[in-house]
Design a binder for these strands. Structure first.
Lengths: 219, 219
DNA sequence: TTTCTTATTTATCAATCGATAAATTAAAAT
DNA sequence: ATTTTAATTTATCGATTGATAAATAAGAAA
């Protein structure tokens, strides 16, 4: 046997520019907290990052400050306004717009980290979730309801306001997509492997029911 | 001012029979862990119960043992076989059977404690969730698919096995109900207040789409 | 090469947390 | 009334955890 006193994984201390190191920590924290939750220890996070635990406190005054940064990055940072334009594009059938949106939304937003951090935050009583739901209702569900009105030949929301029942119908579509990822990333239960097929099938199954509500509400 | 040395809430030490005390602890633990998660401290739980922390260890060797008991009580203990008979009763229209089932399931199973403990357990990587999902598929979703076959005049599962697509369609119904309670108890977001109306509307919206899958699959 | 800045580590504190042992006391047994 | 049992509390341990202060060293500046 040769050298090796300890299983040292400290080949040479590496220095980063503060902005770069901060980003490395945030990215690592997203992964880490998604895995173990916000009760995870700062020492274990530091170990994953290949740094020592006190270094975290050079960049974030408290653990809670780091958690806030994780929220910002994951929830605020991932919403794309391009998605909203997709929903409004009446040159495409509504069904196809919804499928296009959910394809994009699933691959860019509903990731492993997103779903789990979102659920951890909700259980911890953070208001991030309520705020996100408000965003979702105003930027996604109400536009969908508006487009369903147009598709169904029903009055514009300017004339007849969108009802709670119509919003709930739109939630049903969203819930069906969302729950797929809850099963996959939280329960780690086997799910349909062809995501694109699942999304288009689910939109087909749920859209007609929602459209029926639209027609029924405004008569 | 009069006496009162400390804010003592220890008017007189009260003794319970072991079985009774054990049940008090389990019930308190369900409430407590539902509120704060399994990272909650045993001292805080004891305080809520009006007992001292070491007394918990007289009844449960470790915190994990107490958690297991909570799982048993909440998940195993709340499933009613009567629900299964309800789904199979072909003297009633399938729509009404589903509404009846979800009325009962929502009020008896999908409570604040159930939803939150279920999600905490899932995030913690417990296999309780996977096992529960297996129970749900075999005891609820496959029977629902079977009844949809009968309703749609399609072949019995004995002749043409239930497809994954049909199961996914049944999941859509379930997801729509389940997500309502996630919004209510996890995000604490305002939801439709009339639960019975929500359930019947949701079944109406989602059942037709699922039935369309049934008809389509077996042609 | 030498100096200087500061990113990073080492060492450590104080509070928290699960768990154990011994002392106390409410209530049943005698 | 006295004794006995055991449910409950008091006291405490050892490990963990977020956070701080001082020492170290990588890399830029001179």
């Amino acid at each position: 046997m040769a050298v090796s006193a300890k299983t040292s994984d400290d080949p040479k201390r590496q220095r980063f520019a503060p902005a770069e190191r901060e980003q490395l920590i945030i990215d690592g924290a997203i992964q880490f907290f998604a895995d173990v939750g916000f009760a995870g220890q700062t020492r274990e996070l530091a170990q994953r990052l290949g740094i020592t635990q006190p270094l975290l406190y050079r960049y974030f005054p408290t653990k809670q400050d780091l958690i806030e940064k994780v929220y910002d990055e994951v929830f605020i940072g991932r919403w794309k306004t391009a998605w909203e334009r997709l929903i409004d594009d009446r040159s495409i059938p509504l069904r196809d717009r919804l499928i296009g949106f959910y394809d994009a939304y699933a691959s860019e937003a509903l990731t492993y980290e997103w779903i789990r951090i979102y659920m951890f935050a909700g259980l911890a009583g953070e208001d991030i979730n309520r705020r996100y739901i408000e965003l979702l209702e105003s930027r996604l569900l109400i536009p969908i309801c508006t487009e369903m009105r147009a598709t169904a030949g029903a009055p514009d929301p300017d004339q007849v306001p969108i009802s709670d029942l119509e919003i709930e119908a739109a939630w049903n579509i969203h819930a069906a997509i969302f729950y797929y990822f809850v099963r996959k990333f939280i329960y780690r239960s086997p799910v349909e492997s062809d995501l694109a097929a699942y999304i288009s099938d689910t939109v087909d199954r749920t859209l007609d029911g929602a459209l029926a509500v639209t027609k029924q509400t405004v008569t």
